[in-house]
């Protein structure tokens, strides 16, 4: 086996081991630099971070590549962010999105 066969995705993006933290519904969650919010939540064993608009059913990452819009979360007060595409940043406040996540229009 050559050296290239042991290259990991983290190597490819030049990720370092420097862990940082964000919060999910107030709970502290660890993330590595460059890691998406969805990946960090999964790593922490959290699989659902949205409640559907009709029946408030739990949703998390489904396609993981930005297509299905199932993994929407509220990030720093802004709803409908795709957790699988948004990179976790130190101190981010991620909260479970209920329904469409918007206040009633003014």
């Amino acid at each position: 086996m050559g050296q290239a066969d042991r290259t990991t995705p983290a190597d490819l993006v030049g990720a370092t081991d420097a862990t940082h933290f964000f919060t999910f519904d107030g709970r502290r969650v660890a993330a590595r630099p460059g890691q998406s919010i969805a990946a960090a939540l999964w790593t922490a064993g959290i699989l659902a971070w949205r409640e559907t608009r009709g029946a408030a059913r739990p949703r998390g990452a489904f396609c993981g590549i930005g297509q299905c819009h199932d993994c929407l979360a509220t990030v720093n007060g802004r709803p409908n962010r795709r957790a699988c595409l948004v990179t976790a940043r130190p101190g981010d406040e991620v909260t479970t999105q209920k329904g469409h996540g918007h206040a009633e229009p003014r």
Binding site: P79, H100, H102, A103
Partner: peptide
Amino acid sequence: GFVLVTEPLPRL
């Protein structure tokens, strides 16, 4: 023709 689709919104 194109149709532009917004994020789900409250009844607007």
